[in-house]
Design a protein around this nucleic acid. Structure first.
Length: 415
DNA sequence: TCTGGGGTCCTAGGACCC
DNA sequence: TCTGGGGTCCTAGGACCC
């Protein structure tokens, strides 16, 4: 059966949302009309560009580049800090509007979703007309603009939505692929990133059309399964369904990482940072109702060299102290004394709790679990800083690092 | 104070088993 | 005595997305 899929994407999401918020609070300038960015704090070494206005784009400023570099490109650049709470509110407001048009909506990220419009034509009308209606409703009621892409699958809808911005509706139906998608540079294809694009170009593949018409066996030989996926995408082939709800499927792992505002050079400080990460990750793990059987630690040195170590456990765990114990031993195993810029921890291989209950007596974690439960409850009731470890007092470090709520799981490589 | 933070998936190599 | 070969699990690293 032929499907009708829409992809809805907020134009310069973080920047637009901050701009609208400022206008609503009496600002006379609209960030969207001047060279501006949403940028992290340079003083705490979080200074990268998170979103840019269209005028800023004119200065060749790119998302992900250092803020200082963006300022060099445009000395009058206006830099605003991110406000994730506002962004979550805006995102929720958006999805509330979309609920009126279909009950099959997949929140793909905080500012993107897919909407399955299949069969709804008969009730609400022709897709392009309705997409324009949706855009208008969002603009009127929420004050920001979106692009909407329409096609017969998610990949083509997403590619369509990326065509020309802002505030536009586009289609790339299968019969339009050769005219609308194939002339685009190959790096515009979803899943062709910084590493793949140069390799393709080295093979003489410069456009999506070139890729679509490259011998599949050659792509398979060079890129393995990745090559098959790229070939399918270049030809507009994608059968993945719109998964209702947030993200894609069930959660596979939970992680937190942080760039410390100074280089960590001693073990005691490193342990404190790791503990603050473990506190939030293990709390999220408990809230999710899972135990993990893989714990991983990752480090990035002052020279930006990354490494990671992980460990598979015989017994799945969810206690703060149990996770921390593994994290410390992984850290000890890998750290050779280099100054550390960034630290991260991640738990995966998740199992539901009832399945592993018995084995807990092994390590006598039972008492720990009751303690965790009590602390979790106090933090929910009185705020996350109601209970903190005394070791964080006067340390200059945050006792809980990273977000507790994972509202918006990100997409996987398989749409 | 120049380069964030949250994810998923794939691959290669080694260990180990039959 | 010449070293095969399939399968699984684990780990580290790399690719991609927003």
């Amino acid at each position: 059966m032929t499907r009708t899929i829409m992809h809805i994407d907020v134009n310069s999401a973080f920047l637009s949302w901050t701009a609208v918020h400022m206008l609503q609070h009496g600002s006379s300038i609209d960030l969207r009309n001047i060279p501006s960015i949403i940028g992290g704090n340079q003083a705490t070494r979080h200074g990268i560009v998170l979103a840019k206005s269209i005028p800023a784009k004119g200065f060749k400023i790119q998302t992900g580049e250092p803020v200082f570099q963006a300022k060099q490109k445009c000395p009058n650049l206006v830099v605003m800090p991110p406000d994730y709470f506002l962004y979550m509110q805006c995102s929720s407001a958006l999805s509330e509007i979309l609920q009126n048009y279909s009950d099959k909506i997949q929140l793909f990220s905080i500012d993107e979703c897919f909407l399955d419009y299949t069969g709804i034509e008969k009730i609400l009308g022709e897709p392009i007309k309705v997409a324009n209606q949706i855009r208008e409703q969002i603009r009127k009621e929420l004050g920001f603009t979106v692009n909407i892409g329409i096609s017969t699958n998610k990949l083509l809808a997403k590619m369509a939505g990326d065509l020309k911005k802002p505030d536009m509706t586009h289609t790339i139906y299968p019969e339009e692929i050769s005219a609308k998608m194939w002339p685009l540079p190959v790096e515009d294809l979803y899943m062709v990133g910084r590493a793949t694009a140069p390799k393709l170009k080295g093979m003489g593949i410069h456009t999506i059309g070139d890729l679509a018409n490259t011998d599949i066996e050659l792509l398979k030989y060079k890129f393995k399964s990745w090559g098959l996926m790229l070939h399918a995408y270049a030809n507009g082939i994608d059968e993945s369904p719109v998964h209702p709800g947030s993200g894609h499927t069930v959660i596979k792992g939970i992680g937190n990482s942080t760039t410390v505002y100074f280089d960590v050079i001693d073990k005691q400080t490193a342990y404190k940072v790791l503990l603050s990460l473990v506190e939030t990750v293990s709390m999220r793990l408990r809230f999710s109702g899972f135990c993990c059987s893989v714990v991983a630690v990752s480090l990035k040195t002052d020279e930006l060299i990354s490494s990671s170590h992980q460990k598979k456990l015989m017994t799945p765990i969810d206690c703060t102290n149990a996770v921390f114990k593994e994290v410390k031993s992984l850290f000890d195993e890998m750290w050779r004394g280099q100054p550390i810029r960034q630290m991260g921890i991640r738990v995966s291989d998740l199992y539901t709790k009832d399945y592993i209950q018995l084995s807990f007596f092994e390590e006598n974690w039972d008492k720990q679990r009751r303690l965790d439960k009590t602390i979790d409850e106090i933090r929910i009731k009185y705020g996350s800083n109601a209970v903190i470890r005394s070791s964080f007092l006067w340390s200059g470090l945050s006792p809980l690092e990273g977000g507790v709520v994972d509202e918006f799981p990100v997409m996987s490589s398989i749409l």
